Simulated scan of single mutants.
Amino acid sequence: MKNILTLFLITVAFSASAQEKKEKPKTQVVEASCGQCQFGMTDKKGCDLAVRIDGKPYFVEGTSIDQHGDAHAHDGFCNAIRKAEVSGEIVDNKFKATSFVLLETQRAEKK
């Protein structure tokens, strides 16, 4: 009986630990921009959202370039590389985003 109880407690502890890891996706700040216009990616035609992680660009799935403002504005993805806080994973050479939050651009203060 003592062995069964010990085995049960170990199983519950391991299961809770695995569940905790599963529920907390890694969040990181990355460079985000148009893959074609700013990162020189040629796999697709047109303008598509991409992120650069550890110096390598990946097209993004789970959100699109048009969901984050006018891509062709002066600070849009086709004209600027922005910072974004993202979570997700790289699968088949694409970043599958579970969250994507564009961070504010830094503006120079006028004196």
Score class of each variant (00 low, 15 high):
residue 76 G to A: 03
residue 62 G to P: 11
residue 27 T to Y: 02
residue 42 T to P: 02
residue 40 G to P: 03
residue 9 L to H: 01
residue 38 Q to C: 08
residue 24 K to N: 15
residue 100 F to Q: 01
residue 48 D to V: 07
residue 109 E to I: 11
residue 29 V to S: 01
residue 20 E to G: 09
residue 50 A to N: 02
residue 3 N to V: 12
residue 103 L to W: 05
residue 5 L to V: 15
residue 51 V to T: 06
residue 15 S to G: 12
residue 8 F to C: 14
residue 96 K to F: 04
residue 65 I to H: 00
residue 14 F to Q: 05
residue 8 F to W: 03
residue 106 Q to A: 11
residue 34 C to V: 04
residue 45 K to R: 10
residue 51 V to P: 00
residue 51 V to R: 04
residue 42 T to Y: 02
residue 62 G to L: 14
residue 103 L to S: 07
residue 85 E to A: 02
residue 72 H to Y: 12
residue 5 L to E: 11
residue 76 G to C: 09
residue 69 G to D: 06
residue 52 R to G: 06
residue 69 G to Y: 06
residue 17 S to D: 01
residue 27 T to H: 08
residue 48 D to M: 08
residue 106 Q to H: 14
residue 31 E to T: 03
residue 14 F to P: 00
residue 100 F to L: 04
residue 102 L to V: 14
residue 2 K to N: 12
residue 67 Q to G: 12
residue 40 G to E: 04
residue 60 V to C: 06
residue 8 F to I: 14
residue 66 D to V: 11
residue 2 K to D: 14
residue 3 N to H: 10
residue 18 A to T: 12
residue 86 V to Q: 01
residue 35 G to K: 06
residue 4 I to L: 13
residue 31 E to D: 08
residue 101 V to L: 10
residue 61 E to S: 13
residue 35 G to C: 06
residue 40 G to F: 03
residue 94 K to F: 06
residue 36 Q to F: 08
residue 104 E to V: 05
residue 48 D to G: 10
residue 65 I to W: 04
residue 70 D to F: 03
residue 111 K to D: 10
residue 36 Q to D: 10
residue 109 E to V: 12
residue 6 T to E: 01
residue 36 Q to I: 15
residue 35 G to V: 09
residue 85 E to L: 01
residue 103 L to D: 00
residue 13 A to V: 15
residue 11 T to K: 01
residue 17 S to C: 09
residue 28 Q to F: 03
residue 33 S to L: 04
residue 93 N to M: 07
residue 74 H to M: 11
residue 104 E to H: 03
residue 60 V to K: 10
residue 45 K to T: 15
residue 79 N to G: 12
residue 5 L to T: 13
residue 21 K to E: 11
residue 19 Q to I: 11
residue 104 E to S: 15
residue 22 K to M: 13
residue 31 E to F: 05
residue 58 Y to M: 03
residue 33 S to I: 00
residue 45 K to A: 15
residue 35 G to Y: 06
residue 39 F to I: 02
residue 16 A to E: 07
residue 81 I to M: 00
residue 65 I to Y: 01
residue 85 E to F: 00
residue 96 K to Y: 07
residue 52 R to I: 07
residue 13 A to S: 14
residue 75 D to N: 15
residue 73 A to V: 07
residue 19 Q to F: 14
residue 69 G to V: 04
residue 65 I to G: 03
residue 52 R to Y: 04
residue 53 I to D: 04
residue 2 K to P: 05
residue 51 V to W: 05
residue 34 C to D: 09
residue 67 Q to Y: 09
residue 75 D to A: 10
residue 107 R to N: 09
residue 59 F to Y: 15
residue 30 V to A: 01
residue 100 F to H: 01
residue 76 G to V: 09
residue 103 L to I: 11
residue 72 H to M: 15
residue 63 T to Q: 07
residue 9 L to Y: 03
residue 58 Y to R: 03
residue 6 T to V: 15
residue 74 H to F: 13
residue 108 A to E: 12
residue 29 V to Y: 00
residue 64 S to K: 13
residue 48 D to H: 15
residue 25 P to L: 10
residue 37 C to A: 13
residue 8 F to S: 15
residue 34 C to A: 09
residue 62 G to E: 12
residue 55 G to P: 10
residue 69 G to Q: 05
residue 45 K to V: 12
residue 105 T to A: 14
residue 16 A to Y: 10
residue 12 V to Y: 02
residue 84 A to F: 00
residue 92 D to F: 07
